[in-house]
């Protein structure tokens, strides 16, 4: 399995001395859904921002498709698609116009962009609202538009930060299906969540972060075996409460 993302000894310390991320390392390969797990405030979003080059880090090294993300920031951003927890859209634009704008910024040609928008509209079931102004979208619609926006350039590394948060069952299923589809098509998917049910169903391997530190890093099955717990939620609770692996 080819490694698409490599994070080595990542440290992010703020000026006030607070360490949001403290020596975290992991790798994610092609055709894999990798769970970045942790409670709220664990440091997951900080790690994602550091990987996507929009946040500086104090120490460590990050490589995306073998490229150092500090030296090749723009190239790295071209190869990753990040769904942030903020799913806002340009509300005076239609969904399609939103996608066209981001597609142009990612350098897609007009014909490729049209093709990609059509493909994503079908995949994420957006046909009913893609031509409507984003101001009229529900949370579920906005989330689907945000997903489409984050992968408009068909990146090899996809990072989803809490993608099912606040969604109803049907919308959550669409998101889960999309992640599975991305894995099947050989993408590396990083799934950041604190919802253990979704993580257990989807993730091949996981890293559990607590207070910025890595407390576990293995496959879901191995972690269950090591902790003697029946499901990932119990594994998570046991680890976070400090009982260790």
């Amino acid at each position: 399995m080819e490694t698409f993302l490599k994070v080595q000894n990542l440290v992010k310390e703020y000026k006030n001395g607070f360490r949001a991320v403290d020596d975290v390392s992991f790798e994610v390969g092609a055709g894999e859904i990798f769970g970045l797990l942790g409670p709220n405030g664990a440091g997951k979003t900080t790690i994602i921002r550091a990987i996507s080059t929009i946040l500086s880090f104090t120490n460590g090294k990050i490589e995306v498709l073998g490229k150092d993300n500090l030296r090749y920031a723009e190239e790295v951003r071209s190869n990753i698609g990040v769904l942030t927890t903020d799913i806002g859209a340009y509300e005076r634009f239609t969904g399609k116009e939103n996608l066209q704008y981001f597609g142009e910024l990612y350098g897609l040609s007009s014909s490729d962009l049209d093709k990609r928008i059509k493909e994503l509209t079908e995949l994420l079931d957006m046909g009913g609202f893609i031509d409507k102004k984003a101001a009229k979208y529900s949370t579920g619609m906005k989330q689907r538009l945000a997903i489409a926006r984050s992968v408009i350039h068909d990146p090899k590394v996809i990072i989803f930060d809490e993608p099912t948060s606040g969604l109803d069952v049907l919308s959550s299923q669409t998101v889960r299906d999309f992640m599975s589809h991305a894995r099947e098509s050989g993408r590396a998917v990083i799934f950041s969540t604190h919802q253990m049910y979704d993580a257990e169903k989807l993730c091949d391997r996981v890293i559990i972060i607590h207070k910025g530190k890595e407390i576990a890093y293995d496959s879901v099955e191995n972690l269950k075996t090591q902790t003697g717990e029946r499901d990932l939620e119990d594994v998570f609770l046991k680890l976070v409460k400090g009982e260790g692996v």
């Binding site: 996507s52 929009i54 723009e74 190239e75 951003r77 071209s78 990753i80 990040v82 942030t84 903020d86 799913i87 806002g88 859209a89 340009y90 509300e91 981001f102 910024l105 990612y106 350098g107 945000a146 926006r149 984050s150």
Partner: peptide, 14 residues
């Protein structure tokens, strides 16, 4: 306010 800034910064645009 619209929460679109981060998405814009995530593009390869300098």
């Amino acid at each position: 306010e619209r929460k679109t800034l981060e998405a814009l910064l995530l593009t390869p645009v300098k």
